[in-house]
Write a protein that binds this DNA or RNA. Sequence first.
DNA 1: TGGGCGATTGGCT
DNA 2: GCCAATCGCCCAC
Length: 191
Amino acid sequence: VPHAAVRLLGCTVEADTPDGTVAVRLVEVEAYRGADDPASHSFRGRTARNAVMFGPPGHLYVYFIYGMHFCLNAVTGEAGVGSAVLIRAGEPLAGAVRMAELRGLAAAGRATRPGDLAGGPGKLCRALAIDRALDGAPLDRPPLWIEPGEPAADGEVAASPRVGVDYAGEAAAWPLRFALRGNPHVSRPRP
DNA sequence: TGGGCGATTGGCT
DNA sequence: GCCAATCGCCCAC
């Protein structure tokens, strides 16, 4: 059975923003486990911040990081487990002009390079107008919902270590980052 | 109660 | 490649 994170690759994420709906196709995700994963926010148990991770699957976990960025997760584990999938990058499908505006790019509406709009967890949240107000919301209906897409074939999925978790000891090497092989919209560092 | 730090990003050398 | 920005969270004191 494919990993829950892998099953999200190729899915479409749509979001209602103040100026209309935007959509991206997921090209990069990371899996975070529960009490056995030192890299996971749930590793040290339930707190006010990560409470949603310990709730039932099918909900959004949104956290604030580095004093300026939000990151979006889909809770995947059963209630009490604390596992989730970090949404790291998407390929713009609809509303690229709005996403560029939300990203504060000067050339809004003009050509951008792959990854400029949603090629990173913080960038994707900015482009989709995601913040803590969405923490705990269901992921199958507005204002933010994920729809099935073309499933990724095994050979198209590249697994590599997760980004930015060097503090996690042995778990830092676990190959829980999944990306569509060769897709130009994935974040840096490239897998 | 306070200090260190982070599942990041963008700008500058 | 290096580093500042910027603040909520969490744990040690």
